[in-house]
Amino acid sequence: MDAAHGQQHPPGLYLKVWGLLFILSTLSYLVDFYHLAGYLRWSLIVALMLLKAGLIVAVFMHLRWERAALVGAIVLPPLCLLALLALMLLEARHTLATRLLYFG
């Protein structure tokens, strides 16, 4: 295969991913339909959203077939931001607990 023509992926792959995205979207809708609340609701919504975004980036944006250095350059910064966000959440809970203990 000539490099100038690019790489072709089988249409079945795209149809399978489209079907999986449809199933994940249906599950996301069912979270609201069954009136789940609290942390369970939000964790399911975020998990399903991240799965859908990962599938879209991996297959439709062809990141799955890129070199590891490029994948690391694209995926690593958001993962670092998520880790920092988790640390800020822990710090915020500690600060709130301290304020409630001493001022409330």
Rank of each mutant, 00 (worst) to 15 (best):
R93F: 08
F60L: 03
M88S: 08
L85P: 04
R41M: 06
L44M: 10
A3G: 13
L27A: 04
V31Q: 01
L30Q: 14
T26I: 15
S43L: 10
H5R: 15
L48T: 02
H35K: 14
I74V: 14
I74R: 10
L79A: 06
L90C: 14
D32E: 05
E66G: 02
L81Y: 12
F33C: 12
L36V: 06
M49F: 14
E91Q: 15
F103S: 05
Y34Q: 07
M1C: 11
L70M: 13
V57K: 03
L100P: 00
L40W: 03
L70E: 04
S25I: 09
I56A: 08
L85K: 08
L90T: 14
A69L: 12
G72N: 06
E91R: 15
A53M: 12
L44Y: 02
P10C: 13
K16Y: 09
F33D: 11
L21Q: 06
Y34M: 09
G12P: 00
L63W: 02
L48K: 03
L24E: 04
G38I: 01
G6F: 00
K52M: 13
P78T: 00
F60R: 00
V71S: 04
E91I: 15
H94T: 11
H62Q: 14
G6Y: 07
R41D: 02
S28L: 06
A37V: 09
W42A: 03
L70C: 01
R64T: 03
W65C: 08
H94R: 15
L51I: 05
W65Q: 08
Q8I: 10
S43K: 07
T98C: 10
L40H: 02
I74Y: 09
L79T: 06
M1E: 13
G12T: 09
A68P: 01
L51T: 01
F103N: 12
L70K: 09
A4S: 15
Q8S: 11
F103M: 07
L76H: 07
Y14I: 06
L36I: 09
L48V: 03
H5M: 15
L82W: 10
L15Q: 15
P11K: 01
G38P: 01
R64N: 09
L50R: 06
F103Q: 07
L36A: 08
I56R: 05
Q7G: 14
Y34G: 02
T98A: 14
V31W: 00
V57G: 01
V46D: 13
M49T: 14
L27G: 00
M49Y: 14
S28H: 11
G72I: 06
E66S: 09
F103A: 05
L79C: 06
R64D: 01
A97M: 04
H9F: 12
T95Y: 12
G12S: 09
L48R: 00
Y29N: 08
A3Q: 13
L63I: 08
L24G: 01
L79E: 03
A47F: 04
H35Q: 15
A47K: 04
A47Q: 10
V31D: 00
R67C: 13
S43Q: 09
L79P: 00
T98V: 11
Y29T: 05
A58Q: 08
L36W: 01
L81R: 08
L90A: 10
M88A: 13
L101Y: 12
D2Q: 15
